[in-house]
Amino acid sequence: MNKDMPAEIHEYLSAFENSIGAVDDMLVTMMSVSGNELLQKLDPLEQAEVDLISAYMLNSMFWVCLATHGVNPKEHPGKQELERIRVDMNRVKEITDQEKAAKLDRRAASRFIKKSLLGTKT
Protein backbone atom coordinates (compact mmCIF):
# COMPACT_ATOMS: atom_id res chain seq x y z
CA MET A 1 0.00 0.00 0.00
CA ASN A 2 1.25 3.46 -0.89
CA LYS A 3 1.86 5.46 2.30
CA ASP A 4 0.71 8.67 0.61
CA MET A 5 -2.66 7.14 -0.28
CA PRO A 6 -5.40 7.13 2.37
CA ALA A 7 -6.52 3.66 3.44
CA GLU A 8 -10.10 4.36 2.33
CA ILE A 9 -9.03 5.07 -1.25
CA HIS A 10 -6.87 1.96 -1.24
CA GLU A 11 -9.91 -0.11 -0.18
CA TYR A 12 -12.02 1.36 -3.00
CA LEU A 13 -9.28 0.67 -5.53
CA SER A 14 -8.89 -2.91 -4.29
CA ALA A 15 -12.64 -3.47 -4.57
CA PHE A 16 -12.59 -1.98 -8.07
CA GLU A 17 -9.69 -4.23 -9.08
CA ASN A 18 -11.57 -7.27 -7.77
CA SER A 19 -14.69 -6.25 -9.71
CA ILE A 20 -12.69 -5.82 -12.92
CA GLY A 21 -11.21 -9.29 -12.34
CA ALA A 22 -14.70 -10.76 -11.90
CA VAL A 23 -15.90 -9.10 -15.12
CA ASP A 24 -12.84 -10.41 -16.94
CA ASP A 25 -13.52 -13.94 -15.66
CA MET A 26 -17.15 -13.73 -16.83
CA LEU A 27 -16.09 -12.46 -20.25
CA VAL A 28 -13.59 -15.30 -20.65
CA THR A 29 -16.34 -17.79 -19.76
CA MET A 30 -18.83 -16.19 -22.16
CA MET A 31 -16.30 -16.04 -24.98
CA SER A 32 -15.41 -19.73 -24.57
CA VAL A 33 -18.86 -20.75 -25.86
CA SER A 34 -20.15 -19.63 -29.24
CA GLY A 35 -23.14 -17.32 -29.07
CA ASN A 36 -25.25 -19.48 -31.35
CA GLU A 37 -24.45 -22.59 -29.34
CA LEU A 38 -25.47 -20.88 -26.13
CA LEU A 39 -28.65 -19.34 -27.53
CA GLN A 40 -29.83 -22.62 -29.06
CA LYS A 41 -30.03 -24.13 -25.58
CA LEU A 42 -32.26 -21.33 -24.28
CA ASP A 43 -35.93 -20.57 -24.73
CA PRO A 44 -36.86 -17.21 -26.34
CA LEU A 45 -37.36 -15.44 -23.01
CA GLU A 46 -33.95 -16.59 -21.76
CA GLN A 47 -32.41 -15.52 -25.08
CA ALA A 48 -33.90 -12.05 -24.58
CA GLU A 49 -32.44 -11.92 -21.06
CA VAL A 50 -28.96 -12.87 -22.32
CA ASP A 51 -29.14 -10.29 -25.11
CA LEU A 52 -30.30 -7.54 -22.76
CA ILE A 53 -27.70 -8.33 -20.11
CA SER A 54 -24.97 -8.34 -22.77
CA ALA A 55 -26.15 -5.00 -24.17
CA TYR A 56 -26.40 -3.51 -20.68
CA MET A 57 -22.93 -4.73 -19.76
CA LEU A 58 -21.40 -3.35 -22.96
CA ASN A 59 -23.08 0.03 -22.50
CA SER A 60 -22.05 0.15 -18.84
CA MET A 61 -18.42 -0.49 -19.81
CA PHE A 62 -18.70 2.29 -22.40
CA TRP A 63 -20.07 4.56 -19.63
CA VAL A 64 -16.99 3.81 -17.51
CA CYS A 65 -14.73 4.40 -20.51
CA LEU A 66 -16.30 7.82 -21.10
CA ALA A 67 -15.85 8.75 -17.44
CA THR A 68 -12.18 7.71 -17.46
CA HIS A 69 -11.61 9.93 -20.51
CA GLY A 70 -13.10 12.97 -18.79
CA VAL A 71 -16.46 12.92 -20.62
CA ASN A 72 -19.57 13.32 -18.49
CA PRO A 73 -21.52 10.14 -19.31
CA LYS A 74 -24.75 11.69 -17.99
CA GLU A 75 -24.70 14.11 -20.91
CA HIS A 76 -23.83 11.47 -23.52
CA PRO A 77 -26.49 9.79 -25.73
CA GLY A 78 -25.35 6.45 -24.31
CA LYS A 79 -27.34 7.27 -21.18
CA GLN A 80 -30.57 7.05 -23.18
CA GLU A 81 -29.52 3.64 -24.48
CA LEU A 82 -28.90 2.39 -20.93
CA GLU A 83 -32.35 3.61 -19.92
CA ARG A 84 -33.96 1.88 -22.92
CA ILE A 85 -32.23 -1.38 -22.05
CA ARG A 86 -33.25 -1.04 -18.40
CA VAL A 87 -36.91 -0.60 -19.43
CA ASP A 88 -36.70 -3.70 -21.63
CA MET A 89 -35.09 -5.67 -18.80
CA ASN A 90 -37.99 -4.69 -16.54
CA ARG A 91 -40.47 -5.88 -19.19
CA VAL A 92 -38.75 -9.26 -19.39
CA LYS A 93 -38.73 -9.48 -15.58
CA GLU A 94 -42.48 -8.79 -15.48
CA ILE A 95 -43.11 -11.56 -18.00
CA THR A 96 -40.89 -13.95 -16.05
CA ASP A 97 -42.65 -13.07 -12.79
CA GLN A 98 -46.07 -13.66 -14.41
CA GLU A 99 -44.96 -17.10 -15.57
CA LYS A 100 -43.74 -17.97 -12.08
CA ALA A 101 -46.92 -16.73 -10.37
CA ALA A 102 -49.32 -19.32 -9.08
CA LYS A 103 -52.07 -20.22 -11.52
CA LEU A 104 -55.67 -20.04 -10.32
CA ASP A 105 -57.67 -23.21 -10.66
CA ARG A 106 -61.06 -21.64 -11.26
CA ARG A 107 -63.05 -24.83 -10.84
CA ALA A 108 -61.42 -25.61 -7.50
CA ALA A 109 -61.92 -22.02 -6.33
CA SER A 110 -65.57 -22.15 -7.38
CA ARG A 111 -66.15 -25.39 -5.44
CA PHE A 112 -64.43 -23.92 -2.38
CA ILE A 113 -66.57 -20.77 -2.47
CA LYS A 114 -69.83 -22.71 -2.99
CA LYS A 115 -69.06 -25.00 -0.06
CA SER A 116 -68.15 -22.03 2.10
CA LEU A 117 -71.33 -20.13 1.25
CA LEU A 118 -73.69 -23.10 1.49
CA GLY A 119 -72.00 -24.72 4.43
CA THR A 120 -71.13 -28.37 4.44
CA LYS A 121 -73.63 -30.87 5.80
CA THR A 122 -72.03 -33.57 7.88
Rank of each mutant, 00 (worst) to 15 (best):
A7S: 11
N36L: 07
R107V: 11
K41C: 00
D4N: 06
E94A: 11
E49I: 07
E75G: 05
V28Y: 06
A109Y: 12
M57N: 01
A7R: 06
R91E: 13
T29W: 04
L38Y: 08
K93R: 09
V92C: 04
R91Y: 11
I20Q: 08
P44E: 13
D105E: 10
E94Y: 04
L38V: 14
N72V: 10
I113T: 14
P6W: 01
D43M: 06
H69W: 02
P6N: 09
L117C: 09
G119V: 08
P44G: 04
T68S: 14
E17W: 00
A55R: 13
L42I: 06
G70S: 03
E49S: 03
E49F: 02
A102G: 11
G35P: 02
K41G: 03
K3T: 05
N36I: 08
R107N: 07
M26C: 08
D97G: 03
L66C: 05
H10Q: 12
K74A: 13
L82D: 04
A109G: 07
K74T: 13
E11Q: 08
A22Y: 07
P44S: 12
G78E: 00
S34T: 15
Q47F: 01
V28D: 08
E17V: 04
A48K: 11
A55Y: 02
A101S: 15
N90Q: 14
E37F: 05
V28E: 12
E37S: 15
L82H: 05
S110W: 05
S54H: 03
L39F: 06
R91V: 12
A22K: 14
L27M: 13
I53K: 13
G70D: 06
K121L: 14
K114I: 13
Q47Y: 03
M89A: 12
S14R: 02
N72F: 10
N59P: 02
M89F: 07
G78V: 05
K103N: 07
Q80N: 10
P44A: 12
S116F: 11
F112T: 08
S110N: 09
E83A: 12
G119L: 09
K100L: 14
D88M: 14
V71W: 04
R84N: 12
D43K: 10
E94I: 03
D105G: 08
H76L: 02
F112M: 09
E94N: 12
A15D: 06
K79N: 06
K121I: 14
R84C: 00
A102C: 00
K114L: 13
S116D: 01
D25S: 11
M31L: 13
A109W: 12
D88S: 14
L52W: 01
R86Y: 08
Q40E: 14
L13Y: 03
L39G: 00
Q47N: 09
L42E: 04
E81I: 15
T120R: 13
G35F: 10
H76V: 02
A15T: 05
I85F: 03
I85S: 01
K114M: 09
I95M: 05
D97E: 15
V33S: 05
T122D: 09
V71L: 10
P73M: 10
V33L: 08
K93Y: 04
V87I: 13
L52Q: 04
D88T: 08
A7Y: 02
G35D: 10
H69A: 02
L38Q: 07
D88E: 15
R86A: 15
N36T: 11
R106T: 13
D97C: 05
S14M: 03
E99Y: 10
M57D: 00
D51Q: 09
N2R: 11
A108G: 02
S14C: 00
G21I: 07
